[in-house]
Simulated assay, not measured.
Amino acid sequence: MPHFIVEYTDNIKNEANFSKLFEEINKVLIARDTVFLIGGIRSRAIEVNDYRIADGVEDDAFVHAVLKIGAGRSEEIKKEVCDALFEVMKDHFSFLMSNRYLALSMELIEFSEAGTYKLNNIHSRFKKDENLPVK
């Protein structure tokens, strides 16, 4: 963890450039490597094909992001990270927002480690004091 998951309406697929968004999002998270393990960062987008926004009259669109993190971080850290991530989103989608109706939103989901199951050998690439091979 953290996982940054975006749902977006299919009517912005060609303009959204999620690869660039995720590059910037991951930079924000990687810069906080004392808060989040780099090897646990995941960013992904899920296209939504069936939706209705507001009255359905315009070709409205939305981008809704969820940041999922494990419990235990301070309110100050959570706010600072979420503020930084939402600024990236606002900047990234500013052109789209100036040219169409678009709703941007983001929420934080914090969960207990109890009930989650993980196996990840990516972490070993980022451990400096471990005797594991680094490729």
Results as ranks from 00 to 15, higher is better:
residue 112 S to N: 11
residue 58 E to D: 14
residue 112 S to L: 09
residue 48 V to H: 00
residue 86 F to Q: 11
residue 68 K to A: 15
residue 12 I to W: 00
residue 133 P to H: 00
residue 121 N to I: 06
residue 56 G to C: 13
residue 51 Y to V: 14
residue 54 A to W: 06
residue 113 E to Y: 05
residue 118 K to Y: 04
residue 67 L to E: 06
residue 15 E to G: 08
residue 80 E to T: 12
residue 82 C to D: 02
residue 71 A to G: 15
residue 53 I to S: 09
residue 133 P to E: 02
residue 59 D to Y: 00
residue 21 L to W: 00
residue 105 S to G: 12
residue 80 E to N: 09
residue 98 S to E: 05
residue 83 D to I: 11
residue 88 V to D: 08
residue 22 F to H: 06
residue 54 A to H: 08
residue 39 G to H: 00
residue 114 A to Q: 08
residue 97 M to C: 04
residue 25 I to P: 10
residue 95 F to V: 10
residue 10 D to F: 01
residue 32 R to N: 13
residue 115 G to C: 02
residue 106 M to D: 04
residue 111 F to S: 14
residue 31 A to Q: 15
residue 59 D to F: 00
residue 90 K to E: 10
residue 5 I to D: 07
residue 104 L to N: 07
residue 121 N to H: 07
residue 116 T to N: 05
residue 108 L to E: 01
residue 128 K to P: 14
residue 114 A to S: 07
residue 69 I to E: 15
residue 7 E to P: 05
residue 100 R to M: 13
residue 17 N to A: 10
residue 74 S to K: 01
residue 19 S to F: 06
residue 10 D to I: 02
residue 102 L to E: 03
residue 40 G to L: 08
residue 104 L to P: 11
residue 100 R to P: 12
residue 95 F to L: 06
residue 128 K to R: 15
residue 39 G to D: 03
residue 131 N to T: 11
residue 43 S to W: 03
residue 94 S to Q: 07
residue 19 S to K: 10
residue 46 I to T: 12
residue 5 I to A: 12
residue 57 V to N: 02
residue 82 C to W: 01
residue 126 F to H: 11
residue 89 M to W: 03
residue 48 V to M: 07
residue 91 D to L: 14
residue 31 A to S: 15
residue 3 H to E: 10
residue 40 G to N: 09
residue 126 F to M: 13
residue 32 R to I: 09
residue 1 M to K: 04
residue 15 E to P: 02
residue 119 L to A: 11
residue 109 I to E: 09
residue 62 F to M: 11
residue 17 N to T: 07
residue 61 A to I: 08
residue 30 I to Y: 02
residue 49 N to H: 14
residue 90 K to A: 01
residue 82 C to M: 13
residue 10 D to N: 03
residue 73 R to N: 13
residue 45 A to Q: 12
residue 41 I to L: 05
residue 17 N to K: 06
residue 124 S to N: 07
residue 61 A to M: 02
residue 41 I to D: 01
residue 12 I to S: 02
residue 19 S to W: 04
residue 17 N to P: 02
residue 7 E to W: 00
residue 25 I to H: 10
residue 14 N to R: 13
residue 115 G to W: 00
residue 46 I to W: 02
residue 50 D to L: 10
residue 5 I to E: 04
residue 63 V to C: 13
residue 126 F to W: 10
residue 98 S to G: 06
residue 39 G to K: 00
residue 19 S to I: 12
residue 96 L to M: 04
residue 4 F to Y: 12
residue 95 F to Q: 08
